[in-house]
Design a protein around this nucleic acid. Structure first.
Lengths: 241, 241
DNA sequence: GCTTTAGTCGGGCAA
DNA sequence: TTGCCCGGCTAAAGC
């Protein structure tokens, strides 16, 4: 663990070479400008900000507000360094798509280098994937007598979340949403259903979410699609392992 | 500017109260677990990570790899603190949607508090907005004899990027994409064009991007839509201002 | 308040 | 590798 206050740029350069070589986490508070070009391009004038270099080579530049970094480069980026005209240039390069981030460090207030000991597991609950699992295990929640045929079935140009057969042997295409159903979600379901209806009239489409907008409700009726809303609370009791 | 190595949790609590009160940036390296619940829920077991508290109340928790924070809360979240069983609980609460992030700090390795002096402007170039401006100023790039009627025109349920008239007086709906055109982009254009074709057969649709997938190309032909690809390099020379 | 769309979206998964 | 879709998407603009 290394902690330097107001290090010289020579020191910073030397330490960061070790960071890159040994894959360490570096936190830099400094005064710098940033050039970026690639899919888009941008220029950030000089100011005090935070740079985070992660062990996988991803680089984040954060200002003092906001969730998102103002500039960044994702993991597996290459980092090069260069001294020039009294400043330290950090060039972070991503191939495919080729993108270049150039940080012109004028001075550094804080340099912290460490390797975090972090073996703790992360688990996320009740994602759309969880929902799907719940409905597949409990198809009666959707409709009595429903039988799951398959999930993630190819339907022409896309994938339906669940394909089932109802008690009258109709094919049922089911689209799941964790949130409120809008017009776009209905259109997405319609994309799948309408392609199947070309050859088979007895295809039903059901969209399931936590709520539905009145526009989406109307559109669903017009397209002869069905909708259902469930409560997150009601569903979560079916969640197991 | 405050910099503490291995501060006690009492110290951390006291300092963070000042951070919240005075709206400062805080960087914490420590050992902790994280609970989150709201739109989804998650649990992160104990480990060493980085916490960033920004001046606007946004909170980011970063592990040693990856572009994205593992947990977070956006700006204008409320932060509460509590000591319990020898640990420091940081509760970050967002209303609407109601979401709670609970950080159980067991120990702190580094606490850095500062107010960044950052007045530098940020400018981004060649966004989709820039593209639109270029094509509106130079409609001949799309097709000789094309005249722009309007941009951001309401077309039924959405907005077409550009509406124009060709040399044969056909209405031309133009959709711009900065990236590769996929099936969805073609469908989006079709949504607009098909609504107009109900009343007017002479409506053309052109989708413009930097590349196009073979599926999208096929779909466009089937829907009687046109496509064009441009190179970013070719376009950027038209950028001025 | 809601809806729609862009994003340097990132990240994952399957063909 | 390419293409597609999900995300606690976020963020901005329009209604």
């Amino acid at each position: 663990m290394i902690l330097l206050e107001h290090p010289s740029l020579d020191d910073v350069e030397q330490r960061l070479r070790e960071v890159i070589l040994w894959r360490r986490l570096a936190i830099i508070v400094g005064f710098f400008s940033v050039d970026y070009y690639g899919r888009a391009s941008s220029y950030l004038e000089s100011g005090e900000r935070l740079i985070i270099i992660k062990e996988d080579g991803s680089v984040l530049i954060h200002r003092s507000v906001g969730y998102k970094p103002i500039n960044w480069q994702p993991s597996s980026s290459r980092i090069r360094m260069e001294r020039k005209d009294g400043i330290l240039i950090l060039e972070v390069i991503r191939m495919k798509p080729r993108e270049v981030l150039r940080i012109k460090l004028e001075r550094v207030k804080l340099l912290y280098i460490d390797k975090l000991v972090d073996t703790g597991a992360f688990e996320m609950y009740l994602t759309e994937e969880d929902m799907k699992r719940i409905f597949i295990r409990n198809p009666g929640l959707i409709e009595p007598g429903l039988h799951i045929i398959t999930s993630e079935k190819e339907v022409g140009s896309g994938k339906a979340d669940i394909v089932a057969r109802d008690s009258s042997s109709n094919i049922v295409i089911i689209e799941l949403k964790k949130h409120k159903i809008g017009v776009n979600e209905v259109l997405q379901l319609n994309k799948y259903v309408s392609e199947l209806r070309v050859t088979n009239k007895n295809v039903r489409g059901i969209i399931i979410g936590t709520d539905i907008s009145s526009d989406a409700m109307e559109l669903a009726k017009r397209l002869k699609l069905e909708y259902k809303v469930y409560s997150l609370r009601a569903l979560s009791q079916y969640k197991r392992k």
